[in-house]
Design a protein around this nucleic acid. Structure first.
Lengths: 337, 337
DNA sequence: TGAAGCTGCGAAAACGATTAAGTAAACATT
DNA sequence: AATGTTTACTTAATCGTTTTCGCAGCTTCA
């Protein structure tokens, strides 16, 4: 590998000079600089990230915590889109990303330890169990952190407005005559709390009473459990006319349940998703859902983190809300027609 | 950050001793070693990966080249599952992964340069344009490489048997009476070549003649284009009874096309996918498809690469075939019944 | 002319780890 | 007792950078 030393030799200068020339320091003569740059290019020089990180304590590497909610969390379009946009934005700023997990090799370690080991400049917590003490340790550590869809005190968080999304969806259905609403929600995370709040407030304001048995807890991104819950909701005489699902993916399980019971969407039962993953657009009928700007979620998280890393004094430690929008598909029937 | 020096001071030994104790070198006394281990633990010591990499030229980091075939390649279940299993296997061996791209920061660079910059110990090329000269440069460099679904000379590759998969699917359909087959395939990569070969050979052996106009080139993972092509296939009088799609995801586009034309699956038209992504199992009807062992694809690729990194002399530079299996869903009609 | 100020570059230390080579003490061998 | 052999450590160099400080040589100005 060609190093500073090689360039220095070829140019008849010291490594210090080469380093400064390449880094654009001002105290290098123009002719010397251009000569160094040319030779560096000729030799195909590329800095050694390890050496640089060792010396400067800056790795240009950001950690991403991505704990699979179910196994294979990455496999879900929602998360992988977020991940991909984090990576894209990081790349644009010259950062690479490293997945942070527990256990470096055989040794079992904490997330924080892994971060220290790799010397990441900061961390995006994209998906995790926020009650896990190791996550708390990480958040409280002296390390730039941005969380997605979860708020910590004095930390930057990028969140989608779950309350608003749910509110909009409820109003959409209500505007089409639906008054018998059922909701299947995910695990009791802050995301779910937001959505439940939105749901209940909207219902209250619209004067819609939702029986307790029509509000069920399921599991995010799990179409199986969603299928089962949907069947329960549809058993018996008194049925909801519209079901709100925890997310688009598990919604598919719900749709299957509906079909299996000999009912059709939206003719007999209306269905509403959440997320707006690409799949929701190519389904038939296109799913009516709340389209989260997953792209922005990841991009903003990465951008904010990098800002925090590079300008720690001026960065504002607060939440950033990423807007979503209603995707009107064909899965909700207009009862007024 | 606590370093070897801190431990050395606390233990009254040299840093060399601490290093050797922690790395399990034999020339350290048992009592000294245990004392060092205890103190290291107390102090929460974690090695500095940069320093170690600088000295040893081993980063315990493997690069992953993942060029989005379409935008958002990561977003597709097939790729993200592969990625996730690469990452899982790497993690099990104490490696982290780094996405390799072109351009470190503002500077435009080659994949190889990026690898050198980060000092990765090896690379998995999971998805890329294999005609790109920069990919070739990478493959020919003096760096352990494993490719997925593409074969290079004297390099390890992990491939799925596309010929066999297609062959099995054709025979499956033929066994149910289908003799009017259509095929939409992806871009002309080696994957497609394998599948086409399998398709044609199976047809020939079964005495099935497929008109040229029923073999169409589409785009992998693009449901839009697939939808359009499907419509073309179904226009006119003489229709195929069974359509083979490039992959499960784009198949959805095909299914939509079928529905839009007032036809039903499988009653009027049978549909066959490829990949066996999770979605294919929760669809209704469940898709009949070739289930690739994506899990194994990633796991084996990572395992092979690590073997190559750690035992370069004994690793066998050859292809590894990952078996798939037919997933019998309900999207192919039995015409004999 | 001498002091002061620039300009452009080099010397050297430092980051945190690994490791070859050296050494002192203990032990074994003849 | 003299000599080799082990054992358990230390010393010091090194990986490739960055960065502080210092130092010439030149210019400027009184």
């Amino acid at each position: 590998m060609v190093s500073l030393k090689d360039i220095a030799q070829r140019c008849g200068v010291s490594t210090a000079t080469v380093s400064k020339a390449l880094n654009g320091q001002p105290d290098i003569g123009e002719d010397t600089r251009s000569r160094i740059l040319r030779i560096a290019d000729e030799l195909g020089y590329m800095a050694n990230a390890s050496a640089r990180a060792l010396k400067t304590n800056r790795s240009y590497n950001i950690g991403v915590v991505f704990v699979d909610p179910m196994h294979g969390g990455l496999a879900h379009e929602f998360f992988s889109t977020v991940l991909d946009s984090i990576r894209g934005e990081a790349e644009r700023h010259g950062y690479d990303i490293t997945f942070i997990n527990r256990g470096v090799g055989q040794r079992e370690t904490s997330y924080l330890q892994h971060c220290r080991y790799r010397g990441v400049d900061g961390v995006v917590i994209a998906s995790a169990d926020f009650t896990d003490p190791m996550i708390l340790e990480l958040v409280q550590a002296d390390l730039p952190v941005v969380t997605i869809d979860h708020i910590f005190n004095n930390r930057i968080s990028v969140v989608s407005d779950n309350r608003k999304g749910m509110d909009a969806l409820v109003r959409y259905a209500a505007a089409r005559g639906h008054r018998k609403l059922a909701l299947i929600h995910g695990e009791m995370t802050s995301v779910t709390v937001g959505r439940l709040t939105g749901f209940h407030r909207a219902c209250e304001e619209l004067g819609i009473r939702v029986p307790e048995r029509w509000i069920r807890q399921g599991v995010f991104h799990d179409s199986k459990s969603c299928c089962a819950l949907t069947k329960e909701l549809l058993r018996g005489e008194d049925r909801p006319t519209c079901i709100f699902f925890p997310d688009d993916y598990s919604c598919i399980g719900g749709l299957n349940a509906i079909h299996e019971m000999g009912l059709r969407v939206p003719d007999d039962i209306s269905a509403v998703g959440y997320d707006g993953i690409p799949l929701s657009r190519i389904m038939s009928p296109v799913l009516t859902t709340w389209r989260q700007d997953t792209e922005a979620l990841g991009t903003v998280a990465a951008a904010k983190l990098i800002e925090l890393i590079e300008h720690p004094r001026t960065a504002i430690l607060d939440r950033v809300i990423v807007e979503g929008r209603l995707q009107e598909g064909g899965s909700v029937e207009n009862l007024y027609r």
